[in-house]
């Protein structure tokens, strides 16, 4: 079963008169339960690819299917709805809402999905336990270390049981120990609940966990060690 399918996707940024071709005809499929790394040097297009899979951006041409749905012609609100239920994000910077506690940050996607207070509480505590953050549930982000914040971010990304979790350089701002810890948690969740993870990274610590490594260069896929049958 495929979670995401990209067909001949290009993304061109136009800044003034200058056109930058960030992706140049990329096709790939991401299957259910994969733990995939997108690697490549800076400017190779991995973040752009991740954003297109995450429906944060739209391709200049080509098709992006998420969970069997064509996303290219969706409105802003429709894309927001799709993200809300299907996709979780972990960003490179510790992207928590600073005015909300760890618990409230994890609760936010559940609120957006209209879950009942009881459901929200149970799910949020369950996830904070899964990332070993129960004891800091009521701390605000500025009272947490970088590693702890990123673990909360992982819990938040998983809150709505998304089909797909996208992580953009999740360990970039973490030291080795915290980076390993976050990766261990994600790997465990991948195994335990079968969540599909896609990372954009050039951190070898991340790459070593991946079951599939897709290498990008100049906006095209240079190498895919696990290209599934089309």
């Amino acid at each position: 079963m495929e979670v995401a399918k990209l067909t001949d996707v290009t993304r061109v940024y136009k800044i003034g008169e200058v056109e930058t071709r960030a992706l140049n005809g990329v096709s790939m499929t991401i299957g259910d339960g994969e733990f995939t790394s997108l690697v490549g040097p800076s400017g190779s297009g991995k973040t752009t690819l991740l954003q297109l899979i995450g429906c944060l951006d739209q391709p200049t041409s080509g098709k992006v299917m998420i969970d069997g749905k064509e996303t290219t012609h969706l409105s802003r609100n429709q894309r927001a709805d799709l993200r809300k239920g299907t996709i979780g994000f972990v960003f490179q910077f510790f992207a928590l809402i600073p005015t909300l506690t760890a618990y409230e940050n994890v609760e936010m996607p559940l609120l957006l999905n209209g879950k009942s207070p009881a459901e929200r509480k149970q799910r949020a505590m369950e996830l904070l336990e899964a990332v070993a953050m129960t004891d800091r549930a009521h701390h605000r982000p500025d009272q947490l270390s970088g590693g702890q914040q990123q673990r909360v971010a992982v819990a938040r990304a998983l809150a709505t049981d998304p089909k797909l979790i996208l992580a953009d350089e999740p360990t970039a701002n973490l030291d080795t120990e915290n980076g390993e810890q976050v990766m261990e948690i994600m790997k465990r969740l991948n195994k335990e609940i079968g969540a599909t993870f896609v990372f954009a990274t050039h951190d070898p610590r991340v790459i070593k966990y991946a079951t599939r490594v897709v290498t990008l260069r100049d906006g095209i896929i240079e190498k895919d060690n696990h290209a599934p049958a089309k």
Partner: peptide, 16 residues
């Protein structure tokens, strides 16, 4: 700006 980006990314709509 960043927070608004995060909230939008996790599915908050314009009117929210």
């Amino acid at each position: 700006t960043r927070e608004i980006g995060i909230l939008t990314a996790i599915g908050m709509k314009g009117r929210q």
